[in-house]
Each structure stands twice: as C-alpha cells, then as structure tokens.
Amino acid sequence: MAILIDSGNTRLKVGALSVAGTAAADADAAAAPIACAFDNNDTDAFAAWLDALPVVPSRALGSNVAGPERAAAIETALARHGCTVEWIVPREQALGLTSRYQYPARLGSDRWAAMLGVLNRLPAPRPAFLLASFGTATTLDTVSAEGVFEGGLILPGPVMMRRALASGTADLPLAHAEPVLFPTETHAAISTGVAAAQAGALLRQWLAARQRYDGRPPALFVAGGGWHEVEAETRRLLGQVTSATGDLPCVPQVVDNPVLDGLASLLVSGSALS
C-alpha cells in the first residue's frame, strides 16, 4: 500500500492505493480516491488514520506547500510505521506535461501535481484547458492541447480576501452573503466584490487562452473549497461571454482531488523522483 499526501495551507488530504503492480491496482491508482481530509494542523488525526489502516504502508508520495514544520510532522507520523515519504519537486517535463515556468522547480508542487492529474485523466485528443483551484490561494493555470503549461496566476482565495478586509479595516465585517448584481448592504457588497474579483480573474485567463489558441476556447476545470463562493458569478460571466462570441457554452467541470490524481499518476508511472 502507498499513501498519497496533499499537504496544503488549510487542509491535509490523503489517499491510499494498492501498489501490487497489477492492472487493477494501476486503475485504482489512476483514480486516486480521497480517503480523508484533516485540518492542516491536525497531524494527530493523520497519525490516527495511519494507525487504523488495514495494511502497513510501504511508501508515501506527497506534495507539501505548508512549510518544513508540517513536512516534519507528517514524516514523523509515517516513520512510526517504518514508512518514508518522497516529496515531489516540479520538473520541466513529466508524463506529457512541459513546463514553461522560468524556474520549473519553483512552481508550487500542488499546482504541478494538479495539472498532471487533469492532463492524465483526459482522453485523446486532449483539449487545451484552464485549471482553476480555489483554496487558501486561487491559482489559474493554462495547459495547451500539446501538454504545455503556459503559465498562471496566483491571487488570494475567497476566504483570504474576506478575512483581509475584516482584519485590515476598522469597520468592515467578515462578510457572509450571497453575491448580487447591485449590493445595497455591506456583507453583500463584500461577498459580491470577492466573487467578481475571482470570476473576473478566471475569465481573463480563459479569454487569454482562447486568443492564444486561435479562437478555440479551452476546457475549464475547477477545484477547491472556495469554488462554491464564486460559482454563480463565474457561470454568469462565462455565459455572457460565450453568448457574445458565439462559442458553445463553457461548462466548468469539477475535479475533486487533482493533486492526489497527479500523485497517483506519478507513482504508477515510476516518475515520482527527478
């Protein structure tokens, strides 16, 4: 058994899969179902989850963007079972993905794994796609039909935006409201502003990709716990744009665990390490 680890800034997601080397095991690995998610500070819960596994894990593969202390805590929990973890480092090329990042190893390992996860689950011929992940930070990454990562944006996630306004001002609250077209009270004004900023950034990248690929719209994949806050506004803006351009409607496709999917692909292929 192998453990997949997505150690993010807010949550720790883990999955377990067979590494028996059979076709069935490979199919399970490609799916990379999530086994559990914890608050990222709750490594005790992660250790308890490991203790309850029916089979002792033989290896672990992970992405960590939560810093060295979090990595050390995870490593300690795994060491109790005689298991070590390999932390992935993004590379210029892997599993059909070519990175145009100026320094490929400095790309967030979660972004790299997530793109691999989406890319390697797409049937041929693969479309160009935009992967929008709404977590602690929002990332918007574009991959061509040839598997080239063109580049992407990073901005504060929806919750971080709302918290920044609440903590950085004297009078603004931590807003909880549904976005509306013309807000007439403060909570709605903040929630609508956050949704508009997130959806606007997504639409910018979608249109940039459409232009780059000679008018061919990219597929849109979305992930992360903040998607529900921006979904309605995103769909509204995309609908307006595709109606104006005459394109087919762009339907966002939700991917639950793209980082785990990418880790599974790396593990099955034997490409985990550089």
Score class of each variant (00 low, 15 high):
Ala2His: 11
Leu4Lys: 03
Gly8Gln: 02
Arg11Leu: 07
Leu12Arg: 02
Leu17Tyr: 09
Val19Gln: 05
Val19Asp: 10
Ala20His: 09
Gly21His: 05
Asp26Ile: 06
Asp28Pro: 00
Asp28Gly: 08
Ala30Thr: 13
Ala31His: 13
Ala31Asp: 12
Ala32Trp: 00
Ile34Glu: 15
Cys36Lys: 13
Cys36Gly: 11
Cys36Asp: 12
Asp39Met: 10
Asn40Ile: 07
Asn40Met: 10
Asn40Glu: 13
Asn41Thr: 15
Ala45Cys: 07
Phe46Met: 07
Trp49Ile: 06
Leu50Gln: 03
Leu53Pro: 02
Leu53Lys: 03
Pro54Asn: 03
Val56Ser: 13
Val56Pro: 10
Arg59Glu: 14
Leu61Phe: 14
Leu61Ala: 11
Ser63Gly: 10
Asn64Thr: 00
Asn64Pro: 12
Val65Gly: 04
Val65Cys: 01
Glu69Met: 11
Glu69Gly: 12
Thr76His: 15
Ala77Met: 02
Leu78His: 05
Leu78Ile: 01
Ala79Asn: 07
Gly82Glu: 03
Cys83Gly: 12
Val85Ile: 10
Pro90Tyr: 02
Pro90Thr: 04
Arg91Gln: 13
Glu92Asn: 10
Ala94Val: 08
Ser99Glu: 08
Pro104Arg: 06
Ala105Glu: 15
Ala105Gly: 07
Leu107Arg: 09
Ser109Gly: 09
Arg111Gln: 08
Trp112Glu: 06
Ala114Trp: 00
Ala114His: 00
Leu116Phe: 09
Gly117Trp: 01
Gly117Tyr: 01
Val118Tyr: 00
Leu119Phe: 05
Pro123Lys: 05
Ala124Val: 09
Ala128Trp: 02
Phe129Tyr: 05
Leu131Asn: 04
Ala132Ile: 04
Phe134Thr: 05
Phe134Ile: 01
Ala137Ile: 03
Ala137Trp: 00
Ala137Asp: 08
Ala137Val: 05
Asp141Arg: 01
Ala145Thr: 11
Glu146Ser: 13
Phe149Leu: 14
Leu153Thr: 05
Leu155Gln: 08
Gly157Ala: 09
Met161Thr: 08
Met161Glu: 11
Met161Gln: 15
Arg163Val: 13
Ala164Asn: 13
Ala166Gln: 04
Gly168Trp: 00
Asp171Thr: 14
Ala177Glu: 09
Ala177Met: 04
Phe182Cys: 13
Ala189Thr: 02
Gly193His: 00
Val194Gln: 01
Ala196Thr: 08
Ala199Thr: 06
Gln205Pro: 05
Trp206Lys: 02
Ala208Leu: 07
Arg210Asn: 11
Gln211Asp: 15
Gln211Cys: 08
Arg216Leu: 14
Pro218Met: 01
Pro218Trp: 00
Ala219Gln: 12
Leu220Lys: 05
Phe221Ser: 07
Ala223Gly: 08
Gly224Gln: 04
Gly225Tyr: 01
His228Ser: 15
Glu233Leu: 14
Thr234Asp: 07
Leu237Pro: 10
Leu237Arg: 15
Val241Leu: 13
Val241Lys: 06
Ala244Val: 11
Ala244Ile: 09
Ala244Asn: 12
Gly246Glu: 06
Asp247Pro: 00
Cys250Trp: 00
Pro252Ile: 01
Gln253Val: 14
Val254Asn: 09
Val254Cys: 06
Asn257Ala: 15
Gly262Phe: 01
Ser265Ala: 15
Ser265Tyr: 04
Leu266His: 06
Ser269Tyr: 03
Gly270Asp: 06
Ser271Thr: 09
Leu273Trp: 11
Ser274Asp: 15
Ser274Gln: 13
